[in-house]
């Protein structure tokens, strides 16, 4: 099974099992991980599933597409490793992925 770890802004980490093909946002919501709101339900339309990808995972996860980059303008405290978790699909190479959730989602 593929595992993803979510670390909240206070440093509490939660590791959950992720289904290949689901998004990182869906993985969080299905497992009741706090810190991801996903108001729009994964349409890349709200920027409330903002995460910071841990540095060593950035190349495996990749860079945001233009539409996601536009939507990140609505997120707060955007950093170079910011992504919207509804736009990251879980794949075998991402087993062990660590993402950090921000203090606030908008």
């Amino acid at each position: 099974m593929t595992k993803i770890t979510f670390v909240d802004f206070q440093g509490t980490s939660r590791t959950v099992e992720a289904e290949i093909g689901a998004t990182v946002m869906e993985t969080a919501v299905r497992n009741g991980v706090p810190g991801i709101e996903a108001e729009c339900g994964g349409a890349c339309a709200c920027a409330t599933c903002h995460v910071y990808v841990e540095e060593q995972w950035r190349s495996a996860v990749g860079e945001p597409a233009a539409m996601e980059e536009d939507m990140l303008d609505f997120a707060s405290d955007v950093r170079p490793n910011s992504r919207l978790s509804c736009q990251i699909k879980v794949k075998p190479e991402l087993d062990g992925l660590v993402v950090h959730t921000p203090e606030r989602q908008g």
Partner: peptide, 9 residues
């Protein structure tokens, strides 16, 4: 200051 960061519910 006028921040324009979209809408939230």
């Amino acid at each position: 200051m006028l921040p324009f960061f979209g809408l939230t519910m």
